[in-house]
Amino acid sequence: MFEARLVHGNLLKKVLDAIKDLLTEASWDCADSGIQLQAMDNSHVSLVSVNLRAEGFDKYRCDRNLIMGMDLTSMSKILKCSASDDIITMKAQDNADTVSFIFESPSQEKVSDYQMKLMNLDQDHLGIPETEYACVIKMPSGEFARICRDLSNFGENIVIACSKEGVKFSAAGDIGTANVKLAQTSSVDKEEDAVVIDMQEPVTLTFACRYLNMFTKATPLSPQVSLSMHPDVPLVVEYAIGEIGQIQYFLAPKIGD
């Protein structure tokens, strides 16, 4: 028996919004410790990793490890049937070929129950090595989304250059060039407005706008985003999922000039 109840059901809806443009289907691995999803996008350029800790749920039970392969377009359609303040429960029997989504209104006066067929998907788990990153940039997630959107008008790539002075995002194309510099903030009223750079050595890398823009679909999950960069290794773009976990996107840099 698997059962996971989340009072802040809205978080699950936001997770689906954050992955459904990159992935059409994926497996949710359910274990005693929580739920994980790891999948490469449809064109095998980026990797998405979602981790939801068991303790983050209001009720969590997983008697046996369970792999639930899902059509994420269908899952997203079902989650769209819930209200933003609904409590969401996912439930499956051992060896079942369906999963149930139960939506309860906060007053418990409306309860909806949706069943979805599970799929058998080929598991393609990648081992992500532990990396000490040369630069870790923490910044407001809305600011990052805005910069990616704005710079996409100039070219298909964004150059991210991080030094101890700050971080510079640049793009160049037919209409001209664009540069956005963010300095590390000295003092902020709200922690979520801070730009904090943890730098061991300066790094400059080039990334595809198209993917960065898809990663920013996670913006509603968290007021802050972290960008971890290291020469010649994939960028990690990470958003917290409330108090219950995190979503990470991995994207290899572009090479050549």
């Binding site: 990648l126 290899a252 840099p253 572009k254 050549g256």
Partner: peptide, 12 residues
């Protein structure tokens, strides 16, 4: 010319 590097070599 910028070429997209595949991810898989980094992770296997």
């Amino acid at each position: 010319l910028h070429l997209q590097q595949p991810l898989i070599p980094f992770f296997r």
